[in-house]
Structure formats: C-alpha cells, structure tokens
C-alpha cells in the first residue's frame, strides 16, 4: 500500500472524509500513478549505449537521409579531450562566437557539467516533424 493511499484511509477512519470522497481520492491517485508507470515501462531497460540521429528530408523532390549512431562513450571521451583546451584558446573562441552572434562563455562550461549532460542524454528524445523533414534524436 502506498503512503498516499494509507493517508486517505487514515482520513476515512478518523471521519474527516466520507467513504465516497475516499473512493474519489483513491481513483484520482490511481489515475496519477498509471501514466508514470507506463512511461517507465516504455523506456528500454538497461544502460543505453548509443546516440542516434535520424533525419529524413525531401528537398525539391530529392530525398536525403542521415542515419548516425555515435557511442555515448565517444561523447564522454570527447568531453575529456575538450577539457584540455587551454584557457587562451577558449578566450579566442569566445570572441569568435560573440562576433558570430553567439554570446556563449565557454570558460564557464565545466567538464563535470558536460559529463552530467552526456550522462543524462538517455532521457532525451527529440522529434521534429515538418512537411519536408523528420528529425529524431534519441538514445538506444
């Protein structure tokens, strides 16, 4: 029995709510829990290993398709390699990004943050559907 269900029954026993109200509350609780369980079951079990990028586009009647599979381990290794970039190079990169209209301060981007980002990529699914193109980014 869940804690919330027990609380509802305690309220019923204490006479603070009627049996009908208790039934409504339990029904509402079950409705809330059902989608959560379903979404957990929908995810593949076990640790994900690859980042997949699928693009299917049609440009002027010509079909283009991209199917890329990148091991997450490669992303982690890339993050470690990027952590070796000397600060003076980051300053120059910041200036170039700023000139291009992308004001991102790369010196504030810590390797730990990037590693955490890669670690949680398995929870990310991006799907873009437009008349001309379909893009899917997910982990498997």
């Amino acid at each position: 029995m869940t804690e919330q269900r027990k609380d509802i029954l305690d309220l019923l026993v204490a006479g603070k709510i009627t049996a009908e109200e208790a039934e409504q509350l339990i029904a509402a609780l079950e409705r809330d829990q059902a989608p959560t369980t379903a979404s957990h079951d929908a995810r593949p079990k076990g640790k994900v290993k690859y980042l997949r990028v699928l693009v299917d586009a049609t440009d002027l009647g010509e079909r283009s398709r991209v199917n890329v599979r990148v091991p997450l381990q490669l992303l982690r290794a890339g993050v470690r390699l990027a952590a070796l970039i000397p600060p003076q190079a980051l300053v120059k990169a910041n200036a170039s990004l700023s000139d291009s209209g992308v004001p991102i301060d790369l010196t504030q981007l810590k390797p730990e943050q990037l590693e955490a980002l890669v670690e949680h990529l398995d929870e990310v699914t991006v799907e873009v559907d437009s008349p001309d193109a379909t893009v899917r980014v997910f982990c498997e």
Binding site: E62, P71, A77
Partner: peptide, 16 residues
C-alpha cells in the same frame, strides 16, 4: 579514450 570509444560508430548519409 577517443580512439577506444570509436567502435560502434556508424555514419550513413544518403542524398538523391
């Protein structure tokens, strides 16, 4: 590490 992590990578690009 980058070289060791390469196995499994796959790039498939098709245009026309």
């Amino acid at each position: 590490r980058v070289i060791s992590a390469l196995p499994g990578a796959r790039f498939d690009i098709e245009h026309c």
